[in-house]
Write a protein that binds this DNA or RNA. Structure first.
Length: 150
DNA sequence: AGCAAGATGGAC
DNA sequence: TCCATCTTGCTC
């Protein structure tokens, strides 16, 4: 399990940095919704909207451990690969993750995390303040982690 | 209207 | 190290 936090308008690396635009508007809405965008013209990335209505904030889901034992963890590690594996695309943007009727929703499966590690976010210019913040978090013992464990 | 950059991933 | 591929939002 691997995620990254994007802290809204003040975060120079967040899509919310320009304020509410057509693309980022979903991040300024109520929490518990899915924010999906296309990156580099070919990959999708998905985020969970986290802050209260009116304040932007989201968590990028970078990797997840598939419960299906036949599924390959590597194909679920990396934000683009995870969306490809789960067939998430922009048609899922704005989906209510708190509703069991949604095609994608969040539940508590009872798993309890032991140790969480952190690092700078991947793909962010690390010469600046926001590129150095430790806003990437991953379950230390999880095999579903993309990139360096530092 | 034009343009540069981008929260990536896979090939060389 | 390079590049496919196209959307976004800024600048002129």
């Amino acid at each position: 399990m691997e995620v990254e936090a994007y802290l809204g308008e003040r975060d120079a690396a967040s899509h919310a940095r320009f304020g509410p635009t057509p693309r980022s508007a979903i991040m300024f809405g109520p929490p518990g919704r899915l924010y999906v965008y296309l990156i580099y013209g070919m990959h999708h990335c998905m985020n969970f909207v986290t802050e209260t209505h009116g304040t932007a904030g989201a968590v990028l889901i970078r990797a997840a451990q598939p419960l299906n034992e036949h599924a390959d963890t590597k194909s679920h590690s990396g934000p683009g690969k995870l969306c490809a594996a789960l067939q998430i695309n922009r048609s899922h943007n704005g989906l209510d993750l708190t509703c069991a009727g949604s095609t994608v929703f969040v539940v508590d499966d009872g798993f309890r995390v032991r140790r969480v590690a952190s690092s700078p976010r991947i793909g962010i210019d690390n010469t600046g303040f926001w590129g150095r913040r430790l806003l990437r978090f991953f379950v230390a013992a999880s095999p579903a982690v993309s990139g360096p464990r530092r």
